[in-house]
Design a protein around this nucleic acid. Structure first.
Lengths: 222, 222
DNA sequence: CTGGATCCAACGCTGGATCCAC
DNA sequence: GTGGATCCAGCGTTGGATCCAG
């Protein structure tokens, strides 16, 4: 079952509304995709199923999920309390090429310019296939949110550019956090180290903190 | 069956001499590796079998096949006439990073600094498994050969750096040729295009022309 | 509840080259 | 014979994220 890309925002939202209340297992059945029962082996599966159901461009590299609409899809795991259960992955931290990139030209900005948030139930005692999708909502950062993101981004960029990559840890940032992003802790990649030099370090990614996405949920649902 | 890396040049040459006269199918049997009967699907297999038999470092990335000896292995398909039947792949053309690389610092130079050439029968009507390995010989470029290679390399580098990548075609070069290197013709990669700009173009590789490797054969075997 | 560690699939890139139309 | 097109395996990277120790 392949779904064509949505022609416009209205079509995308119609499809997204049709997901609200659906169990992950039911969507997997419709799309004829098997889902592992091991939680460690089914990370990301709910998001990939949603991509297929909504007609996201398959295998798009460094492009929005809905290319012609300029919209990125993110599932957002929500605990029983109503708060996000996990941080949200944004993109890889480009250690090699951060130097000549202003925030407005960054992958972070491009990814977050327009996001379709799709909440999903995330009580860890409930098996993935039993969890329900929620009501999706479109979001673009407000001027205030943009300034917070920009400040966090620039603090990270400044450290990387000046060769202090080991200071770029998870405790940085109000909204935008940096954490390891790799298959395991032994992975290594190159980062700048002073003029012309390089050091090996762990690959990292940008993430949105739960406090930030929680505020978006609150604004959307009151 | 795993073979340990050769401890020194003498051990490498002893192993290489043991390959002379051996059929590809026989070596595959000893190494317990299946070989496709479709010639299009068995490109490169004779070389990979030789690597395993001689104890080349497995999966070495951008390093010589015999790391501690600084020696690269290349099989050389030889027609009944005694001339090379194909050009020899050297390395990828690094479109992004050619700018600050002199010939002596280039991947081409590093790959060709010291090569163990392993001739192999290449009458196309003979199935791969029936073809025989020949007598291997060590080679390093003579001063004259180095100058030819350098001139070809610099001509290519000059075009790439000045943003004229579309002029970098197979008709360039006396010894060192540039040809497409990709899974298919639709592959695209980025190349410089004037100051700060980029253009999409096909990935390319450096190859040695048959006339060049033919001269090496003639020198080695008279 | 924070932040380091980890999991899978898909795709790209590299290294091994030869195929084959003109 | 030239030179553009192509084939496979192995491994790295990215994009989808969540797991889980302290």
């Amino acid at each position: 079952m392949e779904v064509t890309p949505p022609r416009d925002e209205a079509e995308l939202m119609t499809r997204a509304r049709a997901l609200a209340g659906l169990r992950v297992g039911e969507l997997a059945r419709r799309l004829e995709q098997w889902v592992s029962a091991d939680p460690r082996k089914s990370k990301g599966v709910a998001g990939q199923l949603a991509e297929r159901a909504l007609g996201a461009t398959a295998g798009s590299l460094d492009e929005p999920d809905f290319l012609e609409l300029g919209i990125e899809l993110k599932t957002l795991p929500v605990a029983e309390s109503g708060a996000p259960k996990e941080s949200t992955y944004v993109c890889t931290l480009p250690l090699q090429t951060l130097h000549d990139v202003d925030f407005e030209d960054s992958a972070v900005f491009r990814k977050l310019r327009r996001v379709l948030w799709l909440p999903i139930e995330a009580a860890s005692e409930r098996p993935l296939v039993e969890r329900h999708y929620g009501s999706a909502f479109l979001w673009s950062p407000s001027p205030d949110e943009l300034e917070v993101l920009r400040a966090d981004y620039e603090a990270v960029a400044e450290k990387v550019i000046s060769g202090r990559v080991e200071e770029v840890r998870g405790d940085l940032g109000v909204a935008l956090q940096v954490r390891p992003k790799a298959a395991n802790g032994r992975q290594r990649t190159l980062a700048p180290d002073g003029d012309e030099g390089f050091v090996w370090t762990g690959p990292r990614g940008f993430y949105l903190r739960p406090s930030f996405t929680g505020a978006l949920l609150a604004r959307a649902f009151g």
